[in-house]
Design a protein around this nucleic acid. Structure first.
Lengths: 232, 232
DNA sequence: TTATAATTGATATTCGAAAATCATTGGATT
DNA sequence: AATCCAATGATTTTCGAATATCAATTATAA
């Protein structure tokens, strides 16, 4: 019960905080692809000095969410068809690998977590009555997909997968994905969960592959992206 | 003509330069795993201020070559058996994927570049008469392996692969890999090149898998690593 | 008019000092 | 003797000013 003096409440460094907020703004599409990131403006909006800003931007540049041109500053990473294709390719391979390995190594607890996650997901619909995405559904959706690969046992694979997911989320939100989604999510997810839990690796791989490809097709079909240099 | 004062001549930013040197020192093992990276010392040795140093370290942290503990500073990333296993796993999968895809998509020029690379590699032996690694051989070795995956067409895969290669190089140099190498490198590489050029994907995948596994076995067999907390 | 050079303004980069945090030592209390 | 608290020192984190670079505009010459 040490009355440790730490009562500021965050403990997080300024750079970590501005990194989180900046990344969220980019992934959410608030910062448009290709948009210039000027320090004066950033200093203003996030209320921090140059040092934490530069550090946060450097970190984001390493993850390819922003690009740095020497002596010209930072920009939000551009988007393109070819990049989206490359992203899909990597996601298919990485998800397949994560699922295959988890099937090989996962125990009963891993199986149980998947069953729990798909159950929780089924209790929600992806759209609220007024046509917006249910944030709680999005959380459970991500938790479900995480549960599938949770037993793969590879920190590097999981880190890479998390980064790819961020990129994919940005594309999905930049398009108006959910507006055109009459698609039956739940049955796809149920089929996937059953294939994984019953350890049918080949089937699961086919399903996740198709699942990811389908979302990209939908993204490409809503051509809301043209305004951001999406002409490659 | 412009007597502009800019006569330093590099064009590279200070942070880029210190990033390169710092990364080289870490990969070469000059900076030992787990070693503290204090700013006073770094400022001294690299002759730059805090800002470019922090930025370079942040970038290296994103690549997992250094780790950042908040308010405690930066350290060289530790090494461990489990991390080495994870690295091997990822390298096997990524190399396999890159080769498989290159076999699917590569053209005659790609094939020709491989033939050229293996030929150049065969003209050198890996060790100089006095028992050191021939730097020119190392260059050609890397060029050969690069040539195998050069036609995969995925920027993300190539970037990931480059990062994994850096990590692997660090482990190899931290161990005294080449001291214990009576191993026949050339025949392995020749077999690999022939499998790839003749588009035998399954054989090539088996070979690259074994090739990577063998180097890790050698690294683990020279137990020069114990001094750096390699007890996980 | 066109093209080249110089100037200005805007912006990114870097440095050195100030503020905040962590680790360690020494002293007081039980 | 052991434990907890306070104070010191070392180090990181952050800020604001100075420097260097880039981009756009004006001026000059062909």
């Amino acid at each position: 019960m040490t009355i440790t003096k730490s009562l500021e409440g965050d403990g997080k460094t300024l750079m970590a905080s501005v990194y989180d907020r900046l990344r969220a703004d980019i992934v959410d599409g608030v910062r448009r692809p290709g948009a210039k990131l000027r320090f004066d403006e950033l200093k203003e909006t996030y209320g921090v000095g140059l040092s934490p800003l530069r550090e946060a931007l450097t970190r984001l540049a390493a993850e390819k969410l922003v690009v740095l041109e020497e002596h010209k500053g930072f920009r939000v990473a551009p988007i393109s068809r070819s990049d989206l294709h490359d992203l899909l390719f990597m996601r298919q391979e990485v998800e397949m690998l994560g699922i295959r390995r988890s099937i090989e190594r996962g125990d009963d607890q891993w199986e149980a977590a998947i069953v729990a996650a798909i159950h929780a997901l089924g209790k929600r619909v992806n759209l609220t009555p007024d046509g917006h995405i249910d944030p709680e559904w999005e959380l459970r959706h991500r938790a479900f997909h995480d549960s599938l690969v949770a037993a793969c046992g590879s920190p590097r694979l999981l880190l890479l997968r998390a980064q790819l997911t961020d990129h994919a989320d940005r594309y999905r939100r930049l398009s108006h994905y959910y507006h055109s989604a009459g698609r039956d999510h739940l049955s796809e997810h149920v089929a996937l969960s059953e294939a994984v839990v019953s350890r049918q690796a080949e089937l699961a791989e086919r399903l996740i592959r198709a699942h990811l490809a389908r979302t990209v097709e939908i993204i490409l079909s809503c051509e809301d992206l043209q305004g951001d240099g999406f002409d490659d």
